[in-house]
């Protein structure tokens, strides 16, 4: 099973300025963020998944929120939600691909270790 300790390694991905992992109820599981932010993040993640209910689309793989000088990437991870703040001038598409690859890797790593 993937643990919180696995998520901490996400900070090592090039381009990740900060991150936060919250539960569906808005409880902070890893990373740094205020309680208010965590609750709002969980709410937005739930609403994001709800946008495709009763449509042919699967829930979004990621959600990017952008302002002139900053952005926030939200990625659903099972029953949790991961938010990543990219460092400035980091291509967003590449960072999302790197984070998704990381998440796939830590899941796969545990699947392999459970089998062996």
């Amino acid at each position: 099973m993937t643990t919180i300790l696995d998520f901490i390694k996400i900070a090592r991905i090039k381009g990740v300025k900060s991150y936060c992992l919250v539960s569906a109820e808005g409880r902070r599981m890893a990373g740094n963020a205020t309680d208010t932010f965590c609750k709002e993040l969980a709410q937005v993640a739930t609403e994001g998944a709800g946008t495709t209910q009763e449509t042919p689309l699967a829930p979004p793989i990621s959600v990017s929120i952008r302002s002139a000088g900053a952005s926030l990437i939200i990625i659903p991870v099972g029953n949790y939600t991961l938010s990543v703040t990219p460092a400035s001038n980091v291509p967003e598409g590449q960072l999302i691909a790197d984070v998704l690859a990381f998440l796939h890797r830590i899941r796969h790593q545990h699947t392999v270790s459970q089998k062996s």
Binding site: E47, G50, T55, I61, S64, A70
Partner: peptide, 27 residues
Amino acid sequence: PAHHLNQFYHNATRLIPESHEVCLSFG
């Protein structure tokens, strides 16, 4: 293709001050 996008936009942009764009990626 999706529902409740107006509400979703306004709630999502609360997470970052002065944000003006939200992009949902479906692959």
